[in-house]
Amino acid sequence: MSIYQDAIIAGFGGQGVMLMGTLLAVSAMESDMEVTYIPVYGPEMRGGTANCTVVISDEEIGSPIIRRPLSLIAMNRPSLEKFQPLVRDNGVVLINSSLVEPDLTDNGRIRAFSVPVNDIAAELGNLRLANMVALGAYVRITGIIALEAVIKSLSRVIPERYHHLLGHNTRALEAGAAEIRDKYPSGG
């Protein structure tokens, strides 16, 4: 069976959702995978949420737009409410439990993972690292890309003027992965 994963990454504008998507995508490219990334346009754009879709495969990718994804990263509650019903059965739903009640997840139909990414980012000293915590958790859950590949790709995605923060971003990615390893030892 070929390797295939797709994800909708959604949150408020300003939560760094698009950066998560591009970093995941570039990491996949650096890992010699086929990958597409699309910021979603149209009616989906409205309502204060930003979202993007990433598709990763070892085969040529058809559609870059996915109605019913295999996985979802919901950085806020509206994103969970909007996209969770579309996630395929047994798909992955990763929520930012700093902002979303874990009991809102449709656990059982889907596989839910709760990570308080804002709190972990705050502990690391910068709330804006929440997106990196979430991405670290996501790659640990799905195993679609090695965490090291994501860390290696940081410098390609983050603008040069922020390169002094590469270390912080690395630690945030690692913290997210560690949270999954500790909290979900079997499901991660």
Binding site: M29, T36, Y37, I38, Y41, P64, I65
Partner: peptide, 10 residues
């Protein structure tokens, strides 16, 4: 179209 224009790929 907007899909080809806005999507990113290697």
């Amino acid at each position: 179209d907007a899909i080809i224009g806005q999507m990113m790929e290697p």
